[in-house]
Amino acid sequence: MALVAVATIIALVAAVVCGLVVGPTSIATTRVLGDVLSRVGLGHSTLTPLQSLIIWQVRAPRMVLGLLAGAMLAVAGGTYQGVFRNPLADPYLLGVAAGAGLGATIAIVDVGGGLATPSWTPLLAFGGAMIAVIVTWVIGGRGLRSSTSTLILAGVAVASLFTSTQTFLQQQSSTNSIARVYIWLLGSLASASWSSVTLVLPYVIVCVVICVAAGQALDVMSVGEDESRSLGLPVRRVRFIVIAASSLGTAAIVSAVGLIGFVGIIVPHIVRLLVGTSYRRILPISVVFGAAFLVFADTIARTVMAPSELPLGVVTAIVGAPVFVLILSLRRQMVT
């Protein structure tokens, strides 16, 4: 466990350096690090104003947003898998993705007029995501008295409704709008700025803290609802808090970066293979690993075919799947 924690932190530091240093404009690592140190009063920066602008107004906010998105999606996926006791659960299970997709589409195709400015897209995406989760919660029997499978089925129904509405709106819109919706749906950190970081930061901090703190409760919940209650766990209250925190944090992230798949499902599984099945270990490690993973994936997305970018969701799948298979096979070898 300690070894994995140290390795994950080293990966995070490497991801931060990569996020700042690697890009289409070549800037020496030492000069970037020199500039970082000069900002805390150590030495002098040798960057030109343009290079400084690239590092601090383009790459840094993008890297920080990537850290926040990766951390939030990974920990939300882990908590969903714990609370639903379902290894296939991901942060989009209760309709967050479909709701955000519909909200963003309404803004991009400018339904009703006056929504075509960039500021409306994240706002409506966030609103759509939250409406979808709340509708799922209500029709799923408020998630309290009903079983988790009822809630999952409600999520499937709501996601289908929202997705089909979004498809209808797309079909009615212009080719240009369809392309923009499609790009949004694939997820990207390209539009990251300090203002988008500031917007999602409070949500992510609060929601990540709640999710990580729920690790012990999720371990207890692994024995099922009735037994958990007999062990002293207020199952319904814990379920509500955990789902609310995961969904709110995911909605905030999705509204800023679009739909980035794979991180929420694959990162907790990779971490589980490395540290075992206890959520007390899985969740904090997933926060760090997810953050590092997404920044690495974004670095690949923006550099492999520069100046054009690969969709981030495509990269997370292409990078994540082989890593997962590799760890799975290594673990099998260790067991045998």
Binding site: V223, S230, L231, G232, R272, T277
Partner: peptide, 18 residues
């Protein structure tokens, strides 16, 4: 309740990996 009464169910759930 958990401090006063313990329960052993007919088919207890045994979580793999614990």
């Amino acid at each position: 309740r958990a401090l006063r009464v313990a329960l052993v169910t007919q088919h207890p759930t045994v979580p793999s990996g614990m």
